[in-house]
Amino acid sequence: MLARIGHIAYNTYREAVRDRVLYNLVFFALLLVGSTPLFGQISIGLERIVLVNLGLTSISIFGTVIAIFIGIGLVSKEIERKTLYTVLSRPVRRWEFLLGKYFGLAGTLAVNTFFMAIGFFAALLYLNHAFGRSDGQLLVAIYFIVLQFLIITAITLLFSSFSSPLLSALFAFALFFIGNFADDLRGLAGILKGTQHWLVMGLSYLVPNFGAMNVISQVAHEQAVSGALVLQNSIYALFYATAALSAAIMIFERRNLK
């Protein structure tokens, strides 16, 4: 079982890494990250802030785009191209397939983020000629970005387990967008009354809560991120991704592959 999940994960990773679309995205991200020192020179005295904001934001956005675009190919493309048939006609359980796909993509994203982070830190070194103590906080911000990827990947997998690639991408982007405003939704629910209140409140907990995971501005201003936040965010990502994957498995296990 674990061996099969591992094989599927590795194959997914291998496919993704060889896909040229991925190269393009990583290239653009690296370019953007690498060119941030130039942006820094425009706003005098704010170089580090601009570099951190722009660099981390591009890691986050490019990673999300990669996660969603490759993520939708995970299941729906395999169904469309019938590659899934040759996998599931072997002693592979459907949930093993889904988990393998998930870990494969998570691995791909982790490797990508690693390279983009190296580019980012290189740019930072070029700017400051040395790393300061507060630069450790940047790793925390990157860790939170990876946590977001883990959640987005699970969501993408959930959508592609029952929907077409295009719709899956749309749904996933919409959720990513709303996920950044989940706490504002709760604020909105506070104003509403009755059924609407509960609907909006329920929705705000159903969508991924990314608000607490975005500490880019905070670390750009060299403010410390508390250990408790790191812990709680990790727990949140773990549970949310598990929930999304469980739902994906429940849908996929009973799906007729037409």
């Binding site: 019938k82 590659t83 040759t86």
Partner: peptide, 19 residues
């Protein structure tokens, strides 16, 4: 699922992993 260890399947007009 163990049955499928001794089964080979060729789908109609198969298409495989490009890369």
């Amino acid at each position: 699922p163990l049955v499928r260890a001794s089964v080979g399947f060729l789908p109609e007009q198969p298409y495989f992993y490009d890369y």
